[in-house]
Write a protein that binds this DNA or RNA. Sequence first.
DNA 1: TAGATTGTTAATCGATTAACAATC
DNA 2: TAGATTGTTAATCGATTAACAATC
Lengths: 215, 215
Amino acid sequence: MKSDKISEAVVRRLPVYLRYLNELHTREVPTVSSQELGQKLDLNPAQIRKDLAYFGDFGRKGIGYDVSYLIEKIRHILKLDQQINVALVGAGNLGHALSNYNMYLKETMKIVAVFDSNDSKVGSLINTLVVQPIDELGITVKARSIRIGIVTVPNVEAQRVADQLIEAGVEAILNFAPIILKAPPHIRVHTADFTTDLLSLAYYLEDGKEHETNE
Amino acid sequence: MKSDKISEAVVRRLPVYLRYLNELHTREVPTVSSQELGQKLDLNPAQIRKDLAYFGDFGRKGIGYDVSYLIEKIRHILKLDQQINVALVGAGNLGHALSNYNMYLKETMKIVAVFDSNDSKVGSLINTLVVQPIDELGITVKARSIRIGIVTVPNVEAQRVADQLIEAGVEAILNFAPIILKAPPHIRVHTADFTTDLLSLAYYLEDGKEHETNE
DNA sequence: TAGATTGTTAATCGATTAACAATC
DNA sequence: TAGATTGTTAATCGATTAACAATC
């Protein structure tokens, strides 16, 4: 099987595969089966095989998947075989934390500019990058071919910043503000909303056993 | 409709509803329809009605939902009508960023202790909290009835920290390390993995139009 | 009353899993 | 060859959406 439109669920699993494959590669494991992957990643082996088969025949019957080859393939599918420049807007603690993940992403996806609307932050250093004022966003995005914007500003500024990023020409946005951003359909927006993760966790806490569901 | 086992997808939407309802409440809007909610939150109105109906009859036909009443109900469902104490393990930039979200959560879910394995961080202040050494984790979790642990330590430490949290008695973990944590089934683990969000975003970038899916 | 909107059932859609022939 | 494991089809499962009677 190839082509068809690939579902979002499938695409979101690819980085998970890639991550573990990189680990196997470091450990110099040459080959891995869908069963092994599934066990390690808490996924059904059939699902893994199906996911990968959307993009090509990457495995060998009776053997499994060649780790290096599959890494190469997934990196290609995710377009991580080219450098992708990223802008970070919001130089607070969260922005700081994210900029440290550059290493992890092995330089193919790279934060190349940081912006903040707060004058007191402008000019300071985040890793090796000088924080720029937000009105330089448009020029910089174009000059540096920035394709993805990460939004780590307070809620009230998030939509405005997103609009500016889109106006400047980014193709995708990773939004950390816990609000629903409005964007035109050709712009891909992912929301990394840990308040949702945290609050929904509370639902699963044990309590005086029965809690009323209605009255 | 009530009871049945509620799916994870439903539970994860509740905080999203709650967030917008709080906004409406601040704006003193008395009432809201599923249609209006759906439009604002990019969800199907029928889905919203169905989600809420799992827990009780919260709406009024012809009118919609009373904002204050629905807030109260959702807070109850999510157990946010009681204080839930949280421990943060990892006092880096990400931990710092998260501790600032206390305000947002309106104090019902509260980080009451911060731990770090790095001696140079122990004793320093994060907001109003003194960073404690990790070997005080067990005692503190019990003493302060901490029920949720947030893990913001490097990958290599994450599983060990999670084990310590579980051993200490937390019921749920929010994991920020991009690895799959192993935990017993009665422990709820949510992974807030923004590397997955970010890398999967790359898939949706435009490029020289057709990119090969196989060769 | 007429208009609006819920709660709920039925229909649809999509994603996951099982099963197995093909084949390394 | 025998054992392992893929790629893929068919079966299952679950979640979303449409439709509408009930009713405010």
